[in-house]
Amino acid sequence: MKKFIIVNSFLILLGKDVHAAEAGMPQLDPQYWASQVFWLVIIFLSIYVLIDKIFIPKIRNNIDVRKDKISKDLESAKNFKEQAEKKLEEYNLLIESAKKDANKILSESRQKLNEDMQIKRAKIQKEIDEELNNAEKEIQKFKNDSSSKINMISEDIASTLIKDIFGEELNKSSIKASVSQSIKDYESKNQ
C-alpha cells in the first residue's frame, strides 16, 4: 500500500496519470519498478563491493608504486649528478695540479739548462783565456828570444864583416855595444 501511495504521489508530481504510461512513457508504468529497484540494488552493490575491495586498492597500489619509483629514480638521478659533479671537480683539480707541475718542471729544467750553459760557457771562456795567455806568453818569449838572437846574429855578422873588411879582430864588447846602440836607434826611429 505504501509503495502504491509513493508511486501515485510521484506521478502527480510529474503531472501525469497512470494511464498516460500506456499511451506514452513506459518509464511511468509501475509494473516493473520493484523489479528494477531490486536488481539495481543487487547489481550495483556487487559492483561496488568489487570496486571497493579489489579494483581501487589495486589501482591505488599501482599508482603509489609508480610514484615511489619515479621519486626514487629522481633521487638516484640527483645522486648520480652530484657524484658526477664531484668527479668533474676532482678531475679539474687534477688537471690544474698537473698543469702546475708541468710548468714547474719546465721552468726548473729551463733554469738548470741556463745554469749549465753558463757554467760551460765560463769554463770554455776560461780555457780560451788560458790558451790565449799561453800563446801570448810564448809570443812574448819568442819575441824576447828573437831580439836577443837578432842581437847575437847581428853581432856575429858585424864581427865577421869587420874581420873580412879590416882583417883584424875587434873587441867583442865594443861591437856588442855599438850593435845594441844601433838597434836602439832603429827602434826609436820606428816608434
Binding site: 516493473y32 520493484a34 523489479s35 528494477q36 550495483f44 559492483i47 568489487l50 570496486i51 589501482i59
Partner: peptide, 23 residues
C-alpha cells in the same frame, strides 16, 4: 511483489560485467 529478471536487469548486469572486465 514482481521481481522478475527483465531486459533492464540484463543491461544493468552487462554494464556491471563490462566494468568488472575493464577494471
Amino acid at each position: 511483489i514482481d521481481l522478475s529478471f527483465t531486459n533492464a536487469s540484463l543491461f544493468m548486469a552487462i554494464s556491471a560485467l563490462l566494468i568488472a572486465i575493464t577494471l
